[in-house]
């Protein structure tokens, strides 16, 4: 949505031939690089985390919250958020749920499989801006995946932040993503981890209910808090509302939006969300800039 520089170019008046010449000489952003699956780890019944490493050279740096376009030969390409860096930093982790032909093909890959990768693309979580403040992370379902690199970042630099709360909701205890890592986070004394599920049987000793009421129970100073929210859009809408009710300024609430991202570079038009292209103005977007759009159906 930041198009001040675009406005300055006065399109439609005079062709900027220097810019066009530079564009013609630029690297083709549609071309993927070949990566290989180094490891495939089953997270849930339909969800797998792939560790991807470039066939040659180093993987580019990424900001927590960004995504890559993953391509499987002959099947297609899809946008998948980066759910972490591999342990040696040489590649990406992507947590993929089987929801369509491409994601199903990716989720079925075994070590050694070739994958085309373009990216990373998009905006990241405001981790630098949040330094010195409290951070509330609200995740729903697979929405924990794009938040995991942010949580790892926060915990690795714990001294730079105030209180940190991680609020996570899932459908059922069986469907808690990154369960072991959640346990490790929960074992730390310097982070408040609250997990809730929609449905459970008596063997679940944790909380049952939606994630939004956890916001009332978490300890943070609303005026000095940055909130990072990712999950289904309806959950994010209500989580953002609950954060506002708690006194967090709208401009410090960040949501990771999801739309149909086909090109990832703002050229195909599919991921428009009002004036924004989710692929390049998002996926992480400030709530104050999109609150009005979130209230409009079929936007």
């Amino acid at each position: 949505m930041e198009t001040a520089e675009a406005a300055a170019a006065a399109p439609g008046q005079i062709a900027d031939m220097a810019r066009i010449a530079a564009a013609a000489a630029a690297a083709d952003p549609f071309l993927p690089r070949v990566y290989r699956v180094r490891q495939a780890r089953r997270e849930l019944g339909d969800t797998v985390t792939l560790e991807l490493q470039p066939e040659s050279g180093a993987a580019p740096a990424f900001a927590p919250g960004q995504f890559n376009m993953l391509y499987r030969h002959g099947v297609g390409e899809t946008a998948i958020s980066i759910s972490g860096a591999s342990e040696d930093g040489a590649g990406f982790l992507h947590t993929v749920r089987k929801v369509g032909a491409v994601s199903a093909a990716l989720a079925g890959l075994e070590p050694g499989a070739a994958v085309g990768v373009r990216g990373p693309f998009g905006s990241g979580w405001p981790l630098a801006a949040a330094e010195g403040a409290d951070v509330v992370v609200v995740a729903g379902g697979l929405g924990l995946a794009p938040l995991r690199p942010a949580i790892r970042h926060l915990l690795a630099r714990r001294e730079r932040y105030g209180r940190v709360a991680i609020l996570f909701g899932a459908r059922h205890p069986r469907e808690l993503l990154f369960r072991q890592e959640l346990e490790r986070w929960r074992a730390r004394l310097d982070v408040d981890v609250m997990v809730t599920v929609d449905h459970a049987d008596a063997s679940w000793h944790g909380s049952v209910g939606v994630v939004t009421p956890l916001i009332r129970r978490a300890a943070f100073d609303p005026h000095e808090t940055h909130a990072l929210v990712c999950g289904p859009e309806v959950m994010m809408r209500f989580a953002a509302g609950a954060l506002c009710d708690a006194g967090v300024p709208q401009s410090r609430i960040h949501l990771s939006m999801e739309r149909n991202m086909k090109c990832a570079i703002g050229l195909c038009g599919h991921c428009q969300f009002g004036p924004a292209f989710v692929c390049k103005d998002g996926p992480v977007m400030r709530y104050d800039r999109i609150a009005g759009l979130l209230a409009v159906r079929e936007i």
Partner: peptide
């Protein structure tokens, strides 16, 4: 004007459409 507008779409951002840019250039 329409061509100039598409110039902005395809060549105005950090990720250009290089095919368009070449033809246009």
């Amino acid at each position: 004007r329409a061509i100039a507008i598409q110039d902005q779409v395809f060549c105005g951002g950090p990720f250009p459409d290089v095919g368009y840019a070449a033809r246009r250039h």
